[in-house]
Write a protein that binds this DNA or RNA. Structure first.
Length: 865
DNA sequence: GCGGACTGCTTACCT
DNA sequence: ACAGGTAAGCAGTCCGCG
């Protein structure tokens, strides 16, 4: 019944004896003189000239990349359900017969029907025969597995593992993965769990140290006239500065001194060395010369700007061999001798931004990311390069390379570790990890899992053909299926509130209830009675679902091993920090698995599977509420996976948690305890003071990024007063104080004693300006005005700052408001009041209630006598 | 021609 | 280019108003 269970982690063919004994420290490995041939697999690509895949291995000792070309004569292929003889007669195949190498029958397991089937493998000379051009086979006929990139396919078929260590002694042989021994602390934690032995292989891989990669950060400056941005499509201005910062302490500026300001050929300035060149050609040649000493090149926006610009300029001024170093894709730029990491692409990734860095930077610019993560931003450069001296320009340029490098170095190379660990989890190349999003990472891993089980990867339409009945109407218009439940909060102040929540609810459901595209509405008659309550959806009892396995393994490994080790005081701090990176990487995956399953863009999307997950989630929280009521606990709010319980008896609460865990197979934790929490009638909208005194604000207007700084400031002043309040008398006093603050603030607004900047409402422009066709929101109007006034392009993602004005439009970009008399003061007073009312309303209700209760009490007493 | 009731669009948040 | 649920503010529309 458990065929395939937990098989998603398999060791590859390996030597029986471990090469490296009892450690996971690179230092020890490095000290071993025999291990000059130790490499870590980082990347792969296809060479269309050689018609072969090559892998990029980073040598630990020599700190360079070895490019290993396939020696197994592996060829691109796709699968067809037609017989070889049928295919031979097929006109579309006949027309490219010279590119077809072989048609052979292979056995595959079809997960949708749960049967073994015979398919024909169409083996071809080059990947373009399968897909990628208008005339490729996949455009003409129904093919399976025809849209997996060939280099990925190669990695899966040969069982390579990105981020693993290999020994290469003979380049003509297939590299062998190094067998590592498991670190004792991992073994100790593993023994306390019931996880399958096979997971150990994967634990070793994840726990293995990541090298401190030799790398260089690169940034270029172009001598463009003021107000004109250099463009890659039309690179008419010369590159005149390149700044470089290497992990080997290289701190260098290369400058093309186009105005002859520097007399020397070399200079040593405070923070960096300068090499001076008399032509752009020499400069570009020198850039390549230096960066090719480094296996990894780091940029910020190098995909779209620095590298393509270097290449285009290089071609234009006669460095023809520049093409051998920089390869341009449609949206990326790669370096042939190593790996190019564009940090802009990496930090832009929503999962990285939200889960790995908890939204600490709000916009993806070098300045904003650096300020948030390493506490230093860029120093503004007000002048144009024409106005500035070459020395000023160099100083400015150098900080970019320096900051870019530091972003890879802070917290013990956190970012490099993160990238490597994500590559290990997804088994995707470093290049792809940095450029693709979470759904691609998960897809890649799942394709790998299919390949290992010899499962056929189904077509979208085959999954859809199983049936896509929606059982519950979504609450929100335009959504595909129903989501979570939010409990109506009880307005007022509540003291001693304990919040319990289901530990990663959706992933746990996916794991525990065997949810996957093939197990939900599976083909077996005998599973049809295993219904999801309240629906006609059934779940397989016979086989473990492939997505369920993946979610389960990630969750178990994170919770049982790496989360615990990250907090284990017995371990050295450096190790703890590394394990913390591992657990955060796993978190990125675990948080997204449910989401991608419900996304049409995901190749394994299946609506009933996503719907079953949320319906089971609704069932879990409703059941928990029912049990809490039976046990006399008072639930005052809840959202998706959490319950807020007012002033519970500790013993009852513990019993409650145990009973829930017994009744439904999901774990409940105490998440946090509020000294008091304040609700209004609004859902997802409250604040509370935690036991350690910190203020926890959720959803309130004052927290929103769009709220003007002036109003935000007052909002937090009010919260600060409330933080120290405990009794009714204190509340009354606080209320007086708050009233004063509000009156003061309003007076200031009326008298014009507030800076216009502090009144700006910041709104993100999320689409191109021309895409707003249905309505024209104020920030769009403002952006269009700005575009006209300044003649600049405003791209999606730009934050528009508007001021509410008295004129007909009602709002204007802050840049165009010169006089306070334009400001619509009444609007701001309204905004201030609505922001504060979210706090005060709820408190007011409660204060009144408390007063009434008091009267009752005295009346009661009155009647007694 | 104007304002209130209503719906829809857009953004930012929560889980 | 991971999901749905919720709140807020405004744009746009309809309707009544002698």
């Amino acid at each position: 019944m458990t065929q395939g269970l937990d098989k998603w982690i398999y060791p590859q063919e390996k030597n029986k004896q471990p090469i490296i004994k009892n450690n996971n420290s690179l230092k020890k490995i490095n000290d071993n003189p025999k291990l000059d041939n130790l490499y870590i697999l980082l990347s792969a690509d296809y060479d269309s000239q050689e018609q072969k895949v090559y892998l990029k291995f980073y040598n630990i000792k020599k700190e360079n990349i070895l490019i290993w070309y396939d020696t197994t004569d592996h060829k691109p292929y796709a699968l067809s359900k037609l017989r070889p003889e049928e295919l031979r007669m097929h006109p579309d195949l006949a027309s490219m017969s010279d590119r077809i190498i072989d048609l052979k029958e292979v056995k595959k397991h079809d997960p949708i029907t749960d049967t073994d089937i015979i398919m024909t493998k169409i083996v071809v000379k080059d990947p373009l025969a399968i897909g990628g051009t208008r005339t490729s086979l996949r455009e003409k006929m129904r093919l399976w597995e025809a849209d997996i990139k060939y280099h990925a396919n190669y990695i899966f078929d040969l069982g390579f593992q990105v981020g693993a260590y290999y020994i290469i002694e003979d380049i003509k042989k297939v590299p062998k993965q190094v067998e590592l021994e498991i670190p004792p602390e991992i073994m100790e934690k593993f023994n306390k769990t019931k996880m399958d032995e096979k997971i150990l292989e994967w634990l070793k891989l994840l726990a293995m140290e990541v090298p401190n990669y030799k790398r260089v950060a690169l940034d270029i400056e172009v001598f463009n006239p003021p107000g004109i941005m250099p463009r890659v499509e039309d690179p008419q201005y010369p590159i005149f500065i390149a700044s470089l910062r290497g992990s080997d302490n290289l701190r260098k500026i290369l400058v093309y001194d186009l105005r002859n300001e520097i007399k020397e050929d070399r200079l040593k300035l405070d923070h960096y060395e300068v090499e001076v060149y008399r032509s752009e050609k020499e400069l570009i040649e020198r850039i390549i010369d230096i960066i090719k000493q480094y296996p990894i090149v780091i940029t910020f926006n190098g995909d779209k700007f620095d590298l393509p610009y270097i290449r285009r300029r290089g071609e234009a001024i006669g460095i023809p061999n520049i093409r051998e170093y920089i390869k341009l894709g449609r949206n990326d730029a790669r370096i042939t001798w190593g790996v190019h990491i564009d940090l802009y692409e990496f930090f832009k990734n929503v999962s990285i931004k939200t889960y790995a860095f908890s939204n600490s930077y709000d916009i993806v610019s070098l300045d904003s990311v650096a300020k948030a993560l390493i506490g230093e931003g860029k120093i503004e450069f007000e002048k144009s390069f024409e106005e500035a001296s070459i020395y000023e320009a160099m100083d400015y340029a150098y900080q970019d390379a320096e900051i870019t490098y530091k972003l890879t170095e802070f917290n013990q190379n956190l970012v490099m570790n993160l990238i490597t660990i994500i590559a290990r989890i997804s088994n995707m190349t470093i290049d792809d990890v940095c450029r693709l999003s979470i759904s691609n990472w998960i897809k890649n891993r799942l394709v790998f899992e299919h390949r290992k089980l010899n499962y056929l990867i189904p077509l979208r339409e085959e999954i859809e053909a199983k049936g896509v009945k929606q059982h519950l109407k979504p609450i929100t218009k335009g959504k595909k299926y129903v989501g979570a439940i939010v409990i109506q909060p009880e307005p007022g102040i509540h003291f001693n509130v304990h919040v319990v929540d289901f530990a990663s609810l959706y992933p746990s459901i996916i794991k525990e209830y065997n949810i996957s595209y093939e197990t939900v509405n599976c083909p077996h008659q005998e599973c049809r009675d295993n219904l999801v309550e309240g629906t006609s959806t059934w779940i397989c009892k016979k086989k473990r679902g492939i997505i369920s396995q993946f979610a389960g393994a990630i969750r178990d490994v994170r919770v049982n091993i790496f989360k615990k080790l990250a907090k284990d005081r017995k371990l050295p701090a450096a190790k703890r920090r590394f394990y913390d990176v591992v657990q955060s990487s796993l978190k990125v995956f675990i948080n997204a698995i449910y989401g991608v399953m419900g996304s049409e863009a995901f190749p394994f999307y299946y609506l009933p599977a996503a719907e079953a997950t949320t319906i089971l989630g609704r069932g879990a929280i409703m059941k928990a509420i029912e049990i809490s009521r039976e046990m006399g606990l008072k639930v005052i709010y809840g959202d998706t996976d959490s319950l807020f319980i007012k002033d519970p008896d500790n013993e009852t609460l513990t019993k409650f948690i145990k009973r829930v865990e017994k009744t439904i197979r999901l774990k409940l934790d105490i998440d946090k305890i509020y000294r008091y929490v304040v609700f209004s009638r609004r859902k997802k909208n409250y604040f509370g003071i935690l036991t350690d005194g910190t203020v926890d604000v959720k959803g309130l207007l004052g927290k929103k990024s769009s709220t003007p700084p002036y109003i935000k400031d007052i909002f937090y002043q009010v919260l600060d007063i409330l933080k120290n309040v405990n009794t009714l008398d204190e509340f009354k006093e606080a209320k007086e104080n708050i009233k004063q603050i509000v009156l003061n603030a309003e007076a200031k607004l009326r008298k014009g004693e507030v800076s216009i900047n502090d009144l700006a409402i910041s709104v993100t422009l999320s689409k191109p300006l021309h895409a707003y066709t249905k309505t024209t929101p104020q920030h769009v109007k403002a952006a269009r005005k700005l575009k006209r006034a300044l003649g600049i392009d405003i791209s999606p993602g730009t934050i528009i700052r508007i001021i509410k004005t008295r004129d007909k439009e009602g709002a204007s970009p802050v840049e165009l408001v010169r006089d306070y008399r334009q400001v619509d003061v009444e609007k701001y007073i309204e905004l201030l009041r609505s922001t504060l009312s979210q706090i005060l309303e709820a408190m007011d209700i409660d204060i009144k209630e408390i007063e009434i209760k008091k009267e009752f009490r005295s009346l009661d007493q009155f009647f007694k006598f």
